[in-house]
Design a protein around this nucleic acid. Sequence first.
DNA 1: TTCATCATCCTGTATAGACAGGTTGGCGAA
DNA 2: TTCGCCAACCTGTCTATACAGGATGATGAA
Lengths: 238, 238
Amino acid sequence: MTCTKAVPLYVQLKEHVLQNIRSGEWRSGERVPSEHELVRKFKVSRMTANRALRELMRSGVLARIAGVGTFVGDLKAAAHPLQIRNIAQEIRDRGHRHRALPVTLERICPDATVRSRLGVAAQALHVFHSLIVHFENDVALQVEDRFVNPLIAPDYLAADFTALTPYEYLMEVAPLQRVEHVVRAVQPDARIRGLLKLRPREPALLIERVTWSRAVPASFALLYHPGSRFELRGGFEA
Amino acid sequence: MTCTKAVPLYVQLKEHVLQNIRSGEWRSGERVPSEHELVRKFKVSRMTANRALRELMRSGVLARIAGVGTFVGDLKAAAHPLQIRNIAQEIRDRGHRHRALPVTLERICPDATVRSRLGVAAQALHVFHSLIVHFENDVALQVEDRFVNPLIAPDYLAADFTALTPYEYLMEVAPLQRVEHVVRAVQPDARIRGLLKLRPREPALLIERVTWSRAVPASFALLYHPGSRFELRGGFEA
DNA sequence: TTCATCATCCTGTATAGACAGGTTGGCGAA
DNA sequence: TTCGCCAACCTGTCTATACAGGATGATGAA
């Protein structure tokens, strides 16, 4: 049987707005239709239009000023350090297209750094290694250099990382218990620079992340992002 | 006249749920009240309860399964990864010597960027500006370029920032309500590079931070750190 | 005993209508 | 001309109601 799931109206509205922004029809800072205009045009209730615009605002796509209107926001790549989100979801939330390019997928003998991060002793003869480039609308946004504990994900090498991010795969295989990350500004080596298409002096934002599952380190990742196209956002309220 | 702004009902509901989670009353994986239960208990409409729970789900606090119920999510922040940290305290915590060198302390007419961050309208003719270099054992660790809302801290220019950091001063003057920050990797301009004694191609980690007090932006700071000597650490536990 | 069915509870989505409060611009009075 | 008031428009919030579809457990038939 065919599973034709109806697309909710508010999702269709969000898509419509995103489509107009992507196509360049509505530019950054420009006004987008008000809730009432969407109500008239699409024959939906104001609550539905409100939800579509509100969620797009929460994603940073739109900016709203009460009494004035709704405007196209500044679309710059931003991630939330508070939550462990995967890059593909992050990109799709912005209404953009995500593509993953696996460069390397192999079994290696870990060096001292990887061994210490993964906490594997000398008896562990190998770990899995993947190097994947993530694109947002065909522009490189992240180089993911990841080392995986084979005890946690023995079939890691068999996964199809064009369809699923390593994050998504690992979340399915093993429950996430603990996460640690370190954020730094670096000048990456020539290989990473090439993959990210960095300009000559452009720095990269590096996130080193270790995830733990069942009380043992499951994965150690080096996430490189172009300094000019990526930022981490966070905040809290008292 | 007192301006008591009413807190929206859905925000109160979110607060109620968060309070119960923070206090440990509701533990990870446990069931939280259904929308109908919240409706009965708080005498609100189901749409309002729905919005509160939906937004908490989107924040990763709750997990919802249609037909089953709403549950406390897996990941709880053990420590905020980007908590407000006072650079002086941090240096002293490491057992090192902190020294602050005020370079600039003035009243300026804000440019568009500062105005938008501080949310000050055209009526605000000026804001306070300070530029301070922070040293750890006489090595520059942070350049703090800060813009302060004069309505919040009218006597900012009179403070002695060799003895007290602007952060400490502002905390005394005004209660901190909300913080937002953006982290980026940048190549700062020559002036900042000189103050931080950056090596030729060394990047900087830039934290843009806006702090809110009494529902208005109090301060906007650009915090530059040498990429080779500074990092941000964070983590979560289940 | 086993299996299908159904009532029940839950979330997801959607509507129409309502009031509050911020912003803007125009109109009229001083 | 300038100032103040007000109407128009916009977003923010809230209610009452409705229907759908997933999940679960009890009931009853084979």
